[in-house]
Amino acid sequence: MHRGLIHGISTELPMAEHRACARHIYSNLKKNHKADMLKPLFWRVASSYNSGDYKENLAIFKEFDAQACQALLQKDPTTWCRAFFRVGCCCADTHNNHTESYNRTLKIARRKPFVQMLELIRRDAMQRVANRSTIAEKETAKFTKKARTEVQKSCEGAQYCAMVRTTGGEYEIVEFGMGYAVSLSGRTCACRMWDLTGIPCRHAICAIREMNFEVEDYISDYYLTAKWQETYRRGLKPVNGSKFWPDSGRPRIAAPPFKRPAGRPKGKARIKGLNESPRKKKSETKVGREGRIVHCGLCGEAGHNSRKCPHESPESRAKRLKQNDIPQLEAQDQAEMEAAFAAMEQAPPETQPEVQDVSSSAPQISFINRILFG
């Protein structure tokens, strides 16, 4: 949605690969296309590792909803589909969940003043690096847990593959009648999963096993435990408090004048996207509004309410709008006030009895009259 980022990346970083978050691409697509089946079909397209799978999954998507497919292709697929990602970085992510987790940690920090906000962010980052360093130091295997998990999945899928050997260190792996060219020396496979992730795919695992090689020798060095430990070994250094900071001698920066905005406060939480958070579990005792059909209170037909009833006459609509101009509470108060005045006019005036002070210390009436009139 921010076209300035696309222009800025292409201008300032022309050699850098710019990827777009596929989850946000789907959120924008979901605004105008509400079908529930679009989500799994979209992620099949975005997760395609090669051009063959991309064309096949895109054809299925187009057959289901041609208009949604046309709207989807308006976004450059080279930025959100794995089939067009550049190889070499050993990262096949199609989303930016790492930045979303960072935004989650800023929920408390964004409520603070500027300096306190930066200090809280720095301390949170320092604590996070320390925690991950502790976890990495406890790892004893040669490769990280993520790499071992992916290799285990590939080994399970390799049982459905068969190898056809050729010369030059290349092999053809047949899986359900489809051939895939694998090069162990170049560490490439036609499915491109090995090329993008750096972890051998099921086709490569089949060739490695048939040649009696070790699978760990073909995993990228990016997944070494030593690399992981070195990443978090040098954490952030602690910083002394504000009373230890040198005084610059310049005037202090005052906070801008605060003016309460109109409307209900929205809070400090970040506004989430349409499909960002999973829906909460529906209550078993309350009936939701989803699927409810609106009926008009005037004509009784479905599809509209009494405010936009097409069968209401202009005279009736004008009369109803005039009645709605006066608040109900104000009309009720006015009616009660008129009833009270009418009751006071009909009731006879009551004579209040004279109240005499009978206390011993109060002066008597005869004594006061003698002093005033002699």
Rank of each mutant, 00 (worst) to 15 (best):
A342Y: 01
R82K: 11
E156K: 08
Q67W: 03
P348C: 04
Y180F: 11
I60H: 12
A125Y: 09
F213H: 14
P348H: 03
A109D: 13
P251Y: 07
K259F: 11
M178R: 14
I60A: 13
R110L: 05
Q116I: 02
A59L: 07
H304T: 00
A342E: 11
G374S: 01
F176S: 02
V358I: 12
P310D: 06
A162K: 10
W43R: 05
R132H: 15
E139D: 06
M211Y: 01
F176M: 01
E12F: 15
L224N: 02
W43N: 02
H98N: 08
L58A: 07
A83C: 09
K280I: 06
D124A: 15
T351R: 09
E175G: 04
G179Q: 12
S248V: 01
E63M: 03
G288F: 03
A340Y: 12
T140K: 13
A20L: 15
G267K: 04
A147M: 03
E56M: 05
P251V: 11
A66L: 12
L73H: 06
Q364K: 12
P327Q: 07
R233C: 14
Y180H: 06
T134V: 07
K30R: 15
A181Y: 05
E290W: 00
A254H: 05
K280F: 13
G374F: 02
C296E: 00
M37T: 07
R234P: 01
E17G: 01
Y222F: 10
F341E: 14
S27I: 05
V355N: 02
N103P: 00
F213K: 15
K142L: 15
S220V: 10
D333K: 13
A339F: 07
G157H: 12
S360W: 09
P14R: 06
I368C: 03
A141G: 14
E175V: 15
F367C: 02
Q152T: 08
D124P: 00
Q364G: 13
S48F: 04
E312M: 13
G273A: 07
E336S: 14
A136T: 05
K34W: 07
A20W: 12
Q332I: 06
Y223H: 14
C189Y: 04
